[in-house]
Design a protein around this nucleic acid. Structure first.
Length: 311
DNA sequence: AATGACGCCAACCGCCTCTGG
DNA sequence: ACCAGAGGCGGTTGGCGTCAT
């Protein structure tokens, strides 16, 4: 090193910006079929005009089957705070303790919510505030924030924590055992293992117009499907075995994926004409084959977050 | 209804680390 | 031991949605 690094790809020839559903589908299908042994070569092999790094990020942060979305639970938030307190901005390390969460997501939630909370918590601790349940500032990630992190003042402490905040306050602090575990045999990344406990609920604030999915309505079938897919998971036992896969799993998985991506003709997914989810014929082809160009270069962008999709 | 401010988050960038030759 | 290539990581940013005025 020291001579300067050659760019990972020709920046002038790669597509940037939000991923289209067709690109997502193509990347997913390629990885499912061939794995991702070489990210740099993957976009060319998959017929994507993307940088390998971009493909990797998209897969890890969004398309990976075990990625968990929705608001962070108070438990998760507390874990992040505790871990950050211990190890700092080691997002991937922190992510390894939050199954299904990505380092990027954790980083975002820290920067937008938890940093603020941690600052105030620290402040209240030094100010000897008697009971945090009555006067400390607790701001959940699902809360509404109209003030910038940069300008938040001590006087802006929230007086009455809501139910969720109270729940957070009851959480036990990180103990020494947790730290020992952290510093010893921790996995190196959140996606190193797919053998994690399933989330109890997707914590989405109904007040924000999002969907709250209680435990009993979580798509258990989906998680079970993922379990059945474990042998196919690229991060488990090396690579996807491709042709040896059960074709039934492929079909189910792709149907789910298509539904998630808004690619199906399902009326449930097509709520309005203004919906950004593309509805053109190229998106209605459930059997879009890898290798057949969907012409994504001229496709409209789609909402890149599940939040926008109302998932 | 229009518009500006702010918050959120997906994605990019560049450096660091790891690994194989 | 050295080097180059590839993956990984953390910081940053741009675009979009929401809210306040």
């Amino acid at each position: 090193m020291g001579k300067g690094r050659a760019p990972c790809c020709d920046k002038s020839k790669v597509k940037k910006g939000p991923w289209s559903p067709a690109e997502d589908l193509r990347l997913t299908s390629f990885i499912q079929e061939h794995g991702h042994s070489n990210w740099r070569a993957l976009p060319r092999q998959a017929g994507l005009s993307r940088c390998g790094k971009s493909c990797r990020l998209r897969w890890i942060n969004y398309l990976r089957p075990d990625v968990r979305r929705g608001n962070f639970t108070p438990e998760e938030e507390q874990t992040i705070i505790n871990l950050h307190n211990s190890i700092g901005n080691k997002w991937s390390k922190i992510a390894s303790y939050l199954p299904g969460r990505t380092d990027n997501e954790i980083k975002n939630v820290w920067n937008t919510h938890l940093k603020k909370r941690a600052l105030i918590t620290k402040k209240t601790a030094t100010d000897e505030i008697p009971s945090c349940t009555s006067s400390s500032s607790i701001i959940t990630s699902s809360g509404d924030h109209t003030k910038s992190d940069k300008v938040i003042q001590e006087s802006e402490v929230i007086e009455k924590p809501n139910e969720k905040q109270t729940e957070f306050l009851k959480l036990k602090p990180f103990n020494n055992h947790d730290l020992e575990t952290l510093t010893s045999d921790s996995p190196t990344s959140s996606y190193a293992s797919s053998n994690f406990s399933r989330p109890n609920a997707i914590d989405i604030d109904p007040d924000k117009g999002k969907i709250e999915i209680p435990l009993d309505s979580v798509d258990i079938d989906f998680w079970e499907l993922l379990d059945s897919l474990d042998p196919l998971h690229p991060d488990k036992a090396g690579e996807i075995n491709g042709p040896n896969q059960d074709p039934g799993i492929d079909i189910e998985w792709f149907r789910f994926l298509e539904k998630e991506l808004g690619l199906t003709n399902d009326a449930d997914n097509l709520t309005s004409e203004e919906n950004l989810v593309p509805t053109g014929p190229q998106f209605q082809d459930k059997n879009l084959e890898p290798g057949i160009s969907p012409g994504f270069d001229c496709l409209p962008m789609w909402p890149s977050s599940h939040q926008n999709l109302g998932v």
